[in-house]
Simulated scan of single mutants.
Amino acid sequence: MSGPEHGAKTRREGLVLGSVRGTPIILANSWFFIAAITVLVFGPQLRGIYPALGAGSYAVAFAYALLLLFSVLIHELAHAVAAKMYGWPTHKIVLNLWGGHTEFDFSKATPGKALVVAFAGPIANFVLAGLGWLVQLGLPDTASGPVSLGMAIAILLTNIFVWANLLIGFFNVLPGLPLDGGRLVESIVWKTTGSQEKGTVAAGWAGRVIVIVILAVALGGPYLTGSQPDLTTSFIVILMAGFLWMGATASIKGAGIRLRLPEISAGALATPAVSASNQCTVAQLWTLRGEYPSEPIVLFGADGRPAAVVDEYALAHVPPEAAATTLATAVARSLSQGAYVPDVAAGAELVQYLAQLPDSEYAVINLDGKVTGLLSQAKVVAAITGKPLQ
């Protein structure tokens, strides 16, 4: 891991700790919240067990938070290394309130490769747990006699490190997104159906089921034994469940969008339109409107490219005596340069192109360059999200 040239720097989502082969490692602002919770919860507990620590118990609790951070960092680095092994572009590693995530490009993924990258993280945690266990073997056994306070703290932190990595590893292999184990469900469905998106949807729903099971066990389980769930535990479980539910939902929605993309084309979504020169007059536009009473009118410039769209209200309110001398551009709203797309443009190509333009409407042209329709941004968004046009 190599740091930035001038040390850690801040960006909107958090503190940049460094980078690995060009991939920034970001400590999200939310991590400081969970670190504070860890210190406030475990500090007093440690002080009760080791009174001699005094205020130092909070420093030990913070060391616990740092050990968790280190474990999550290794987990995410394992994902990044595995992704780079397959040549997948890795954009960033974020360590946050909920643990962390590694953002990389899945476009070259296959079911098998996706599994390797996903399970690299949990495997790294199991390796860390094993290393921690080896360290434990070299530490004194508290059952065989008293040890110094420093040694007792070392034993405690080592034990916490082992169990924390086991917990992170086993938790992440649960079969539902956004957990790493969700890639197993995704890959099985992907391999069976040939569609990664359908696999992602299935894994997202599996993730929602896991959330419900976690809530039922953590919050309802204590009542079965005649007790009540601990307030702190309930708070953490509810926060975690909320995060998992949002992650699963985002996966389902994202996959749904990718499933709809191939069916989205400029020609299919556009409203049929007619065209006229931007040098014609309002009187000529009125004649054209008589022939085509409902189609939008797109004006083209001297180069033959779409340049503006006639405003129907303005067109209808030009005084008759001025119609023959008023240019069409006076009753039109301009289009940005290049605000037109071929009618065959579809899917991600169409969306990426439109995302580069500031307009809310675009002319649609055929292969001969003739205007065939007018496409609104709202229609494209509705088609992508699957929501009805407002």
Rank of each mutant, 00 (worst) to 15 (best):
F161H: 13
V162M: 08
A164G: 02
A164P: 00
A164D: 03
N165D: 13
N165C: 13
L166I: 15
L166Y: 05
L167Q: 11
I168R: 10
G169K: 07
F170P: 03
V173E: 05
L179Y: 03
D180N: 11
G181L: 06
L184M: 14
V185L: 11
E186Y: 09
I188C: 09
V189L: 05
K191G: 11
T192M: 04
T193N: 05
S195Q: 12
S195F: 03
Q196F: 03
E197V: 04
T200Y: 01
A202G: 11
A202M: 05
G204T: 05
V209W: 04
V209D: 04
I210R: 02
I210S: 07
I212V: 15
I214M: 14
V217S: 10
G220I: 10
G221K: 10
P222L: 04
T225P: 00
T225V: 05
Q228I: 06
P229W: 06
D230G: 15
S234I: 08
F235K: 10
I236G: 07
I238T: 15
G242C: 06
L244F: 11
W245G: 13
M246S: 14
M246C: 06
M246L: 14
A248M: 01
A248D: 00
T249S: 13
S251D: 09
I252D: 02
K253W: 00
G254F: 03
G254K: 05
A255F: 02
L259H: 09
L259Y: 06
L259C: 10
P262L: 07
E263L: 13
E263R: 15
I264L: 15
A268F: 00
A268D: 07
L269M: 10
L269G: 11
P272H: 04
P272T: 05
S275K: 00
S277F: 00
Q279R: 12
Q279Y: 03
T281Y: 00
T281P: 00
A283F: 01
